[in-house]
Design a protein around this nucleic acid. Structure first.
Lengths: 133, 133
DNA sequence: GCTTGACCTTCCCGTCACTGGAACCCCCAT
DNA sequence: ATGGGGGTTCCAGTGACGGGAAGGTCAAGC
């Protein structure tokens, strides 16, 4: 398979696939003309990484997941540990975003949003705690 | 004020303050010795930007907010529009993260996490939809 | 007066995960 | 032979800084 076909099948841009090769996530063979020649296994790995990335795993984590994926003697505990850690990061991020959301929603709600200059949002940003009114 | 004092007062690293000057968010004067000489107004702007950043506004958005902050003839509607847009982005991000969280939590929950190689997490990443069992 | 150490300056590289674009090669059909 | 649609490499840029080097400055202590 050439890169365009694999890109379509894996749902990744060709640029991304070249990048993944560059950083060593995959090692596709080369045809005589210099084109990358992807095997089924390469495609599976790319799709795997694509899904892991869509769950928010970093490239470093994807590399580790891929290594476990390819290791028939892996312990599922190792995989789970990675996933649990990442899940905690996601949850922490959600907490952070919800805090932002709450603060911002309060400010937005307090602001008339008209043609006048008076603005609780700017006041809130100028001095926290003395947000509205 | 020198940079360390302002950094402490604004709660920002000195590096960040230099960066903000570099990109034109602030324009502190210089002492004869070449040191930055921050006025109260600079400090206020830095604290303002710091708070906006902590609410997740990008530098571009902070620049716009600062311009509104300094414009006594602003319309609060302009501020609100910026904030509403950003709030929508935050909420979209939360939705995305919650989707990741749900998927990942399912996978984690299905995985024994023992010494054996069988792993629903890896299966889920290999082929979505045929996640567990 | 000299040293020490804390503070300041600029400059450049590295981060993360790509993305865009230039310049060039290859293959097939007309 | 020519055109278009593949493919290739390499370089630069993104956002918002952080680390660290090389060097100037200042206040204190001896």
């Amino acid at each position: 398979m050439n890169i365009a076909e694999v890109a379509k099948a894996a749902g990744l841009p060709a640029k991304t696939i070249r990048y993944y090769e560059e950083i060593g996530l995959i090692q596709p063979k080369r045809s005589e003309n210099g084109y990358r020649a992807f095997a089924e296994a390469d495609l599976h790995k790319l799709a795997f990484v694509g899904r892991a990335r869509s769950l928010g795993f970093s490239i470093v984590e994807c590399r580790a997941l891929l290594a476990l994926y390819e290791d028939r003697a892996r312990a599922s505990g190792d995989v789970k540990a990675l996933a649990v850690t990442h899940l905690a990061q996601i949850r922490a991020k959600i907490v952070e975003l919800r805090s932002m959301e709450a603060t911002l929603a309060d400010l937005v709600q307090a602001c008339n949003g008209d043609h006048r200059p008076d603005c609780p949002i700017l006041r809130g940003l100028s001095a926290p705690g003395s947000g509205d009114a």
